[in-house]
């Protein structure tokens, strides 16, 4: 049984039909990349899984259990973490508080923070600073740390390299690789080399439909198979 099954989901924003029967599966321990041009529905796919934008048709299953239409916090409690586009750090909360929010109730907050700081030592140095004062790279580290301390079985990671300097992208890639060693990841990423480097499998999304999929070991970034769906 797959950890995550997305079964023929259709999702709308108002009258706009964004996802038109998207299906994909993610198994435990995998890193799966979802690639595609801007505006084809990648972020909406992650939002649909989190039930932030619930589908009007189709099902989302986690460990075989139907989570379609449940509250987002219940999806999070079930072990799905979301590292969104633009990080969405709580700018007026300190680094410590940002991490604290992500720690499930009843868990040891200090131990969770220690885990985050061990993975991202830079955060320990800035732990009393407000999230809004961090650099883009530090915010991305913090966003990943929040996903880590949530004890999630599945992390939905949306465009982690967006807007970051190349040197920082490399650090973020290392952090994601470390994270992927511990948990299952569904990665949305426009940076194709990064996505192919991290992922075991890929899906290509185009105009709200899955148009291709396969093992990342079968393709290269220059493959026409990928290029035709990724170039603007």
């Amino acid at each position: 049984m797959s950890l995550l099954s997305v079964e023929a989901v259709h999702t709308y924003y108002g009258d706009s039909h964004i996802l038109e029967g998207v299906s994909l599966e993610v198994d435990s321990g995998e890193v799966v990349a979802l690639v595609g041009r801007n505006g084809v529905g990648k972020t909406t796919t992650l939002r649909t899984i989190m039930q932030l934008t619930p589908p009007s048709k189709g099902r989302v299953r986690l460990r075989g259990e139907d989570i379609t239409g449940t509250d987002t916090h219940d999806v999070a409690d079930a072990g799905v973490g979301w590292i969104p586009e633009n990080r969405r750090i709580f700018s007026q909360l300190t680094v410590e508080e940002n991490v604290h929010v992500a720690v499930p109730e009843g868990r040891d907050v200090d131990a969770a923070r220690e885990r985050a700081y061990e993975t991202f030592p830079d955060l320990r140095e800035h732990r009393y600073r407000d999230g809004g004062t961090l650099s883009g790279g530090q915010q991305q580290m913090l966003a990943i740390a929040r996903g880590l301390v949530g004890d999630n079985d599945l992390l939905l990671v949306d465009e982690p390299s967006e807007g970051l300097a190349p040197l920082i992208v490399s650090a973020v890639a290392d952090a994601l690789a470390a994270t992927a060693a511990e948990t299952t990841v569904l990665l949305v990423e426009q940076n194709l080399p990064l996505a192919l480097d991290l992922a075991d499998r890929f899906y290509v999304l185009d105009d709200g439909r899955i148009v291709d999929s396969g093992e990342t070991s079968e393709v290269e970034e220059s493959d026409e198979r990928l290029r035709r769906y990724l170039s603007a």
Binding site: T72, H73, R88, L93, V101, A102
Partner: peptide, 25 residues
């Protein structure tokens, strides 16, 4: 308090707070 933290987080971005497991309702 943890609830106060949830209030401050939810005040800034209730959708993100919910995605981190906070029962915003």
């Amino acid at each position: 308090t943890r609830y106060g933290l949830y209030v401050r987080a939810g005040s800034e971005d209730s959708e993100m707070a919910a995605a981190l497991g906070v029962n915003v309702r």
